[in-house]
Nucleic acid binder design. Structure first.
Lengths: 249, 249
DNA sequence: AGAATCTAACTAACTGGTTAATTAAGGGAA
DNA sequence: TTCCCTTAATTAACCAGTTAGTTAGATTCT
């Protein structure tokens, strides 16, 4: 029995089927499918191409977040997105390309949210706090993303893939550079304790991300809901104070 | 083959075989195999059962750390451990059981290292620092473990598995309880800022673990070796100072 | 008609797990 | 000592089920 990877997917080997070429949708449907109250075009429609693509991407985010790259199943993604599996391969080259798209979605959202702060002309201390705030809020608003991020970090084994290098160059490098500058200036102005960005950055990311990437586990294990509005507000307050105390003078 | 079950009659269809009862190893081999210079017993030997089991477990730790649960391949584990794949199933029920064994290995080591500190009669502030030190040193000495830990945390999706509940009960619960007590006392004695263990614990774990679980990626991306002796010493200093500043009064 | 969108059914390759055969060693009997 | 039987340890070959990806078309819009 396949335990971790296994999933049931009966291929209907026995069920009686109509002749292959004689299939037609039941009369009265005419390519439309009633679903959850609203009518949705189904066959060969040009109506919702973007909608389909977006649905696939959304489903893929959820799937990759839940099961990781190796654990993600394309069949399940298609099912969640309510499209045929072949449509995944119509819009995306392969599973890896789909994963890349998910990464871009997740990381570009983060960068857009966070980079403007780092490029602003706030004072180092305020800038750092604002950076953490924005980062936290982005993650809190998309609590599935940390699992994708974490998976991606962990994917790299021994040597980096070209895709990972691209991600690093496009998303992490600019943030790292800005952060290094921020810390240098903050230390010079006496606003921040002098720290190595190579130490601070992974610590910030770790603090913010770990809580969310393990949230489902915490929810299952404790009585508390780690993603409730109040809990998240409390967590936010803690994180900001924690970091302020740790690095601000 | 005269298999009584009738399952497989097509065993070794091509290779010419000696008569069943007359088979003996070639003269001069006598069950030993020369391999990379040293002689290693190979066939049906009762000599190294523990050695074999240990080799499998060691290989499994590396494999699960590198590829995660779903990505881990039993064939590769067997190959790394230099044993036949069937031997995995001789010593462990299935892939999941092997993974459980890996988890126990990793978490029990951590608990043994860390719980005595929490149960000692150090003052709250010193106890906290000592806890973090021990935790850090354990992880630094086993830099593969964070990836296993992280994978395990992320494995839980939506609802906890019975195995996860066991892990939580056996390893996390006692640590959490001690930590909660420590923080309460520390706050009462005015040694520590009053914080929720539900916030502090995942932050500590996140800070310590994230750096190591992403180390391979960092190594591939930057010029620095994040696991060099000097870098780890620097990191250790940073982490301890960071946490001291953040929660100690 | 033709292009864009979409699907049922299929397949090649892989992967976890099983099986029957095989080997070395220990113990007892002759 | 020699022979045989039992058992633990180990393996090559195999299989059933799963999964990423493909194919040959169907549908609808312009």
């Amino acid at each position: 029995m396949a335990s971790t990877t296994g999933r049931k997917q009966t291929r209907r080997p026995t069920s009686p089927r109509r002749g292959r070429l004689a299939q037609r949708p039941e009369a009265g449907e005419s390519g439309l499918q009633r679903e959850r109250g609203r009518i949705r075009t189904r066959f060969g429609t040009r109506g919702q191409p973007e909608e389909s693509r977006a649905a696939i991407l959304r489903a893929a985010v959820a799937e990759f977040a839940e099961y990781g790259i190796a654990g993600a199943r394309t069949d399940r993604i298609a099912q969640t997105a309510k499209v045929n599996k072949a449509l995944l391969y119509y819009y995306f080259k392969d599973k890896d390309a789909l994963y890349e798209a998910v990464l871009d979605h997740v990381f570009s959202g983060m960068r857009e949210r966070v980079l403007p702060v780092l490029e602003s002309d706030l004072e180092p201390r305020e800038k750092l706090i604002e950076y953490v705030s924005q980062y936290f809020d982005y993650i809190a608003a998309n609590p599935r993303f940390p699992r994708v991020v974490q998976s991606e970090w962990m994917r790299v084994g021994a040597h980096a893939s070209p895709q990972m290098l691209r991600i690093a160059r496009e998303y992490f490098a600019p943030i790292y550079a800005q952060m290094a500058k921020l810390l240098r200036e903050g230390a010079e102005k006496g606003q921040l304790r002098p720290v190595n960005p190579l130490d601070l950055l992974p610590s910030l990311v770790g603090i913010v991300i770990f809580y969310f990437s393990t949230a489902t586990a915490m929810k299952a294990l404790l009585k508390v809901d780690p993603l409730s509005k109040e809990r998240i507000a409390e967590r936010r307050k803690f994180v900001l104070e924690f970091i302020t105390e740790a690095v601000c003078l």
